[in-house]
Design a protein around this nucleic acid. Structure first.
Lengths: 230, 230, 230, 230
DNA sequence: CATGAATGAGACTTCATTCAT
DNA sequence: AATGAATGAAGTCTCATTCAT
């Protein structure tokens, strides 16, 4: 009776060709959003770079915002997958940490860091724009590192007297700062060396400083005892 | 350079009243840009909050972009001034570092972190938009810290085996990461405690590695090598 | 008229299966147009509700407009058929009138009044849109009532001093007004009671008021005479 | 703190020139909406007919919908004012009724009936589109007639055994039906004669049934019953 | 015959910016 | 100096319609 019905929204098509289109649009959309940010990116440009009409873009994504969300999600998924798949769990915490940092840096720099900026910039407009599912994405995104640090704390390789959140800032913070520097200055860096340096720099701060010293002293004493008895 | 007269382009008015106007617009502009970011901020809103017409804003600033640049510059100036003026140069490097971090955090959080986001977000659109004089601003902005670290290296309080740039990332990075976290999660933090904690955490990484510790580490490494070869 | 062959234009397919398709589309089209009106109805929605592709709709109807026209025509046909088939021609004009009004109200209200609105709304855009054959449809639609009123005039049951057109307005007018009220307010009504009330109210106006009085007086006189003579 | 603030909506200007502009846009808007209906009317056409840019229209009205609402309200106001101002309250109820009907017909037909169609068409999309304040407008719009009929009932000039709402339908219904006929067929009518005829036709139905007539009708019915049973 | 896929045309709306007064 | 008023340019999004497969 009442005419307040939902107005029948067009579903995006779902064939094998359609999936390819979706991938194409996401690929180009990632480029454009990364280069320009959400506001300055235009659906026109996405369409033009792809050589299709604007309407085609809207056939597969209901809105510019939805496209952007999907771009960001995809990119998060890539990072999460890369890290979860490649993490050398049988090696030391420090080596795993180096892997995490290196992978992050590599993926960011390959992609151009624009996406990093996109996420950081758009993430803050919490309530109204993109940020609906952001908190969850952030959680999944930082989960591997949090997990790693927690295991480190359990095994005694990482100090226990500092909240995990702060340790996470200690790792992600300088990493992102390096990335921003690359973005702003345009200077290229040696990714692998930077990752190694950064971890080397951070490592002492992550350990219980006294603990290391104490352990080493105990080690020396035991060696001396052993030599004396041998 | 050229002696050709600049084509009659409207100059912003001068005089004491005019200066007050400029200050007012900058004050309100800072609010609006901080709350909304460059794209979502509108000249309309700036004018309305100030109770003047939109045209008035354009009497004193040639464009929205110019206004935004001035807002950012002013804010940089404030930070730089605050740090240069308050830095306790006669105290230890560590105490000076705490002052720098605390002042940064305080100024950011008082202003609402919107400006931080503004700078970080808009800074990256290098070639075309705001970022013309950004490199220079960044340089002046980080100068006090760079200076401090250099002095620390000279006095032996800060390790010399790491490039200054990396040390700077080590300080600014976690700081900004903490700020983003505040922005995104909306959680309030205890500024002074956070500054103290952060420096405490960073300090071991900034110091010259302890002599004994270094010797012990070398010892352990040699033992490991020997065992591996034996 | 002309012997020039019509240029190869796609004809809607023929066959028993095709006829079923056409009926299906018309059925769903009626729903959608009734709910939304011509402009707000979309071919997408028609196709979706039917579980076919949009292109299929256009295989059987050259355009949205053509579909809408057919929907309206079909609905007119139903009303005309229902009235012509059920009209109790052997009863009094007043009873036939009640049947006409009741049947109209019933069909409108079953269908949801959306079609009524559709016809009334779209009918007015005479020259350009739907209204090509509307005048003819209107004529056939009101024909049964016109016919009934004419017979009433011939038999003396309906006054002859008023043009038929005005009498028709007198009947259809309040009827449609009641319908609009139902549509707008959403209030449900008792169809049969409403039809009876309406006719009761109209009936005095349709009769020659003096004529009725005169006839009744004559009737009474004759009865008195008859009794006197009997 | 939170960035979910209202985004500073541009106020429409409010000078003497501005008022003239508002009036101009409303005048042209009324034309366009009347000719095309809400959906088919375009802001482009309003602007073009006025010789201004589309942006100008949106300077004074926040949206197409708001403009349309204002157009309708203005038109309602005109009718209400005309009737309230001109109603000859010292004359008989029948003469007042003639005035109401005549004024309605005149205003509708001068304006072109498009507005009538607009209101009737758009009024039904209750929840979502225009119809927010429609019920109230409808009430004010029919108030003078309702009032008149109520006074007629009080004075004994109008029958009391029928609900007011039905009497209202009895008056407005045929009136609107006549109007639709004019719209659809395009035929011109003599407004004053039509008004007189319509009231003449309705009047018997509005009056208390004549006492003698009622008695005679009962007599006839009893006779018919007796004959049927005999 | 049915449809997946694409699109041209156009709609409403926003906003920085200009200019006469 | 201040502003009321106007607008060009651009952006997002919708939808009837076409066509190759």
């Amino acid at each position: 009776m009442s005419s307040v019905a939902t107005p029948a929204q067009r579903r995006s098509p779902a064939g094998p060709k359609a999936e390819q289109r979706v991938r194409d649009i996401l690929r180009v959309g990632r480029e454009v959003f990364a280069e320009r940010g959400f506001e300055r990116a235009t659906t026109t440009e996405v369409a033009q770079r792809l050589g299709v009409s604007e309407a085609t873009v809207f056939t597969y994504f209901r809105s510019k915002r939805e496209l952007c969300m999907r771009v960001i999600q995809d990119w998060y998924d890539e990072i999460i997958t890369a890290i979860e798949a490649g993490l050398p769990r049988d090696q030391s915490v420090r080596e795993q940490l180096e892997f995490v940092v290196l992978t992050h840096l590599r993926l960011f720099l390959i992609q151009g860091t624009g996406l990093c900026a996109l996420v950081l910039s758009e993430g803050r407009t919490k309530g109204q724009d993109l940020g609906e599912g952001f908190v969850e994405l952030q959680r999944r995104y930082t989960a591997p590192l949090m997990d790693l640090l927690a295991r480190g704390q359990a095994s005694g390789e990482v100090r226990r007297d500092i909240p995990l959140r702060l340790l996470r800032s200690l790792v992600f913070g300088p990493m992102e700062h390096m990335l921003w520097e690359v973005v702003i200055t345009g200077r290229q860096i040696d990714v692998e060396a930077s990752a190694r340096d950064l971890v080397a720099l951070l490592w002492p701060a992550l350990q219980a400083p006294d603990a290391e010293l104490a352990r080493l002293r105990r080690l020396r004493e035991r060696l001396q005892d052993a030599l004396a008895q041998g």
